[in-house]
C-alpha cells in the first residue's frame, strides 16, 4: 500500500507568534498513500502545522514541498488547488448554505466555466452545472448524505456536519488530505464508522492522509506511522507500537513523576 514516493515533505518548519515558538524545526515526509497520525498534548502546535502547510498563516522559516514544488509562501487557495485539502478542528461549514452548496463550492476551481458563461447562461454553463451537481450528489451519497442535500448545513447534527466537512474537503479533489480531529465530540459508534470511512476514502480516492487526533484508540488503530509533538517540537516518531512504549511520549502526556512511577 505505502509506496516510497514522497508526496508532501516538510523541512525544518518553524513558526513564532511574537516571542513564542509554536512550531520548531518540524520535519515530516509523507509517502504516497500513507495514513499518518500527528498527536501530542493540547497546545503542542499540531493545528499550527496544518495552518502553516495550508498557507493560512505565514511560516517563519522552513520549506514545504508538494511533490517537487515548493508551496510555502503561496496563497491558501493556490495550495488547495494544487491538491492539499483539510478539515477543521472546530467545524467550519458554510452554515447558512445547503449541504449540496457546501460541496459544490469546493468544486468551484474545477467548475469549468467562466463569469461570462454564467452571466449569459451559455449551454456550457448549463451542461457543466448539471455535471457538477450530479458529481456532488454522488459524493454525498458516498457519505450517505444524499437525503440531506438541500438541508441547511447549520441544522445538521454534529456527526453529520463532520461528514459533510470531509465530503467537502474531498470535493477539492486533493491528493493529500489533512484531517484535524475528525473524531472530536463523536460517540463510540460514530467513531468506529468514521474509522471505516477514513480507510475507505483513502483507498477509493488514492489519498495520502495526515491526521490529528486526540482519541488514542483511533490513532493507534488506523494510523500506520505516528509523529508526536510537544511544545512545538517533535519528540518521537514511529509505528503505533513503538509510540506506545516510548518513555518520552508517556512523560509528555502524563508528566514526569507519574511516568517514572508507572515505569518503576
Amino acid at each position: 500500500m505505502t509506496s516510497t514516493r514522497t508526496v508532501l515533505e516538510i523541512r525544518e518548519l518553524t513558526k513564532f507568534f511574537g516571542g513564542l515558538c509554536a512550531v520548531k524545526n518540524f520535519n515530516l515526509a509523507l509517502p504516497q498513500g500513507a495514513l499518518w497520525g500527528l498527536i501530542g498534548p493540547n497546545g503542542a502546535g499540531k493545528t499550527t502545522v496544518f495552518n502553516l502547510v495550508t498557507g493560512l498563516i505565514p511560516l517563519s522559516s522552513g520549506e514545504v514541498l508538494f511533490g517537487a514544488e515548493r508551496i510555502d509562501g503561496l496563497e491558501p487557495h493556490e495550495i488547495t488547488r494544487l491538491g492539499i485539502a483539510r478539515t477543521f478542528q472546530n467545524i467550519r461549514l458554510f452554515s447558512n448554505l445547503s449541504v449540496l452548496d457546501n460541496v459544490r463550492i469546493a468544486y468551484h476551481p474545477h467548475a469549468g466555466y467562466g463569469l461570462s458563461d454564467s452571466l449569459l447562461r451559455t449551454p456550457k454553463f448549463t451542461l457543466r452545472e448539471k455535471e457538477l451537481t450530479e458529481e456532488a450528489l454522488e459524493f454525498l451519497s458516498i457519505f450517505k448524505l444524499e437525503g440531506l442535500a438541500e438541508e441547511t448545513a447549520r441544522n445538521l447534527p454534529y456527526g453529520e456536519q463532520r461528514r459533510v466537512e470531509i465530503a467537502r474537503a474531498l470535493a477539492c479533489k486533493p491528493q493529500v488530505l489533512l484531517l484535524d480531529e475528525p473524531a472530536a465530540g463523536m460517540n463510540p459508534r460514530e467513531i468506529i464508522a468514521l474509522m471505516e470511512l477514513i480507510h475507505f476514502i483513502r483507498d477509493r480516492f488514492k489519498l495520502t492522509i495526515l491526521l490529528i487526533e486526540h482519541q488514542m484508540r483511533v490513532v493507534m488503530s488506523i494510523c500506520e506511522r505516528i509523529t508526536v509533538m510537544d511544545f512545538g517540537e517533535v519528540i518521537a516518531r514511529g509505528t503505533p507500537k513503538e509510540i506506545q512504549d516510548n518513555q518520552t511520549v508517556i512523560e509528555a502526556y502524563l508528566g514526569k513523576g507519574v511516568a517514572g512511577s508507572a515505569a518503576g
Partner: peptide
C-alpha cells in the same frame, strides 16, 4: 441573478459564511 446562481456566486456566498474555510476550499477570497 445569473451571477449569484452560479459557481462564482456560490463562492461569493462562501466568503460571507467563513473566509478561512473558503480559502481552504480553494476559493480566491
Amino acid at each position: 441573478r445569473n451571477f449569484i446562481r452560479s459557481s462564482t456566486g456560490r463562492a461569493t456566498m462562501s466568503v460571507r459564511e467563513d473566509e478561512i474555510a473558503a480559502k481552504a476550499m480553494g476559493i480566491n477570497v
